[in-house]
Amino acid sequence: MKKTLAVFQKEIKHFFYSPIAYIVIAAFTLIAGIFFYLYLSSFVEAAFMDMIRSQQFRSQPQRFNINLQLIRPYFWNLALISLFVLPLVTMRLYAEEKRSGTVELLYTTPLSVGNIVLGKFFAGIFFYFVMLIPTFIFMGILFIYGDPEWGPVLSGYLGLFLLGSAFISGGLFISSLTENQIIAAIGGFGLSLLLWVIGWAANYSGPGLSAVLNYLSIINHFEDFAQGVIDTKHLFYYFIFCTFGVYLTFKSVESIKWRS
């Protein structure tokens, strides 16, 4: 446990001592901010148009649901940006150690493979959490000037967090297979994208297969969270997904150790 923590702390230091962390956070915040601005503008415009219309026809203005019309699609967007950005976070988690030869240190000190893999996995998740912090400001703006419901916002973040963890577990696995960070990034992105779009294939396949594909699709499970529903079914999916990703990493590290 203490050793896992040591690996975790080391990874966090790596993130924040290198410029990549700040570039990734800045890029994520910028893109998230632009999307937020666009969504907010269109929402305000729609509400404004409705107000004018209701004045013309002397009817009650429609009640616009900010949770449904702004926050929910916005969470989808954050998920999409995460899909692109997280491979950049996970790429170096393992590949860099292999390239620089520091795996020799990790494998010849009394560290278990579990210590290494879990430390790195949780460090990735922690970094993702830090990356999401600036988006709290955007949500804060909505709470200052509007009155969204708390529940769906929290569940949306929970969903985002779980989705990100799943991406990280997959990316970590890919990173453990190679010593080339670019391959790790592209592989991690490919894997995440594949799991994202796999649900589409369900539309064109038989009933048996489509159920499987729908279940596998990483984004289908996110939908409920964005709507404000926390279903144990989805919690279970992400939990299994992360466990499986970490397990594969564990196995790949062990097997490469035996082969090298």
Partner: peptide, 18 residues
């Protein structure tokens, strides 16, 4: 096997921990 972005003390501290 060195971590080039840590300083010497931090590096040895990490090694001591593991």
């Amino acid at each position: 096997p060195l971590y080039s972005d840590l300083n010497v003390w931090e590096y040895l501290d990490f090694v001591a921990k593991i």
